[in-house]
């Protein structure tokens, strides 16, 4: 039974990895078409993606700007909401938190269509900053959750201790709340970073074809057939994801963030 369980997990991992392995392998092709296993293996596609091909370097630059900008903005938006929810727990705070999570909870294509109209009226359609704000709003729910988990983990007796020793609210916030929630804030930041990097459909409507992120560029190229350079993009993305989540697992408590039981280890 135990062996059967391990077999099932291994099989699941295999199926999960299968398309990723195939795409990664295809990146090594020497020619213009995708073959698996790769023919005439070379690493020159990596140089094309990162350095020489303007289509891809521009797209990569846009992706990075949008992801970093959206992650920063999402954390800045989520912090006050999570803090209000934790410190007051008022009805208003609950409503704001509910509204903030809404875009993430509905089918993304609907929010994408809405944002397309929205920026059309406000005049940001096709501008990179509108893409940044759109992703920040879409993914705000993630830092909202991680920061809330972090705030809940603060021992209230530490705050009482700070208060009895004469710390003002601001001092207690700086010396107790902020350091203890930092790993959770960073986790939220990186969740947004990775998901924004990979998000497609909302960006599709918001960019209005005037700029392309890597995922958009790949979708645009789907019609002309695959090239090995696209596979390099896929490898880059999966490596970034693994690096980010490994860092969260290393410096934060990933099982706890994912909602595992605390009492068992």
């Amino acid at each position: 039974m135990r062996a059967l369980g391990h077999l099932y997990m291994a099989l699941s991992a295999l199926v999960l990895a299968l398309p990723i392995v195939v795409v990664s392998g295809a990146a090594l092709n020497g020619g213009r078409s995708m073959f698996f296993p790769p023919q005439d293996p070379t690493l020159s596609r990596f140089a094309e993606f990162f350095l020489t091909e303007p289509v891809w370097t521009n797209a990569l630059q846009n992706s990075i700007i949008v992801a970093v900008g959206a992650a920063s903005l999402a954390v800045l938006l989520a912090w006050p909401i999570a803090y209000m929810l934790w410190s007051s727990g008022s009805k208003l705070a609950q409503v704001i938190a509910g509204l903030g999570s809404l875009p993430f909870a509905v089918p993304p294509i609907v929010f994408g269509v809405g944002l397309g109209f929205y920026w059309g009226f406000l005049g940001g359609l096709g501008d990179l900053w509108a893409g940044v704000v759109s992703h920040a709003v879409l993914l705000m729910a993630l830092p909202l959750v991680t920061i809330s988990i972090g705030l809940q983990s603060i021992d209230r007796s530490h705050l009482d201790a700070a208060a009895t020793m004469g710390a003002t609210d601001a001092q207690a916030f700086r010396t107790v709340v902020l350091p203890q929630t930092l790993p959770y804030t960073l986790s939220g930041f990186f969740f947004v970073l990775v998901l924004s990097f990979n998000e497609f459909i909302v960006m599709f409507f918001v960019s209005a074809s005037s700029y392309a992120t890597v995922t958009l560029q790949i979708f645009n190229s789907l019609r002309n057939g695959y090239t090995p350079t696209m596979a390099v993009a896929a490898i880059t993305f999966i490596v970034v994801s693994i690096a980010v989540f490994s860092a969260i697992a290393r410096w934060g408590d990933l099982p706890r963030l994912m909602g595992a039981d605390q009492s068992r280890n």
């Binding site: 398309p19 990723i20 990979n198 497609f200 789907l222 695959y226 596979a231 896929a234 999966i238």
Partner: peptide, 16 residues
Amino acid sequence: SSLSLSEVFIVMGWDI
């Protein structure tokens, strides 16, 4: 990591 992998990459992989 596999959860965050973009829909376009997943479709590309299965398409191949």
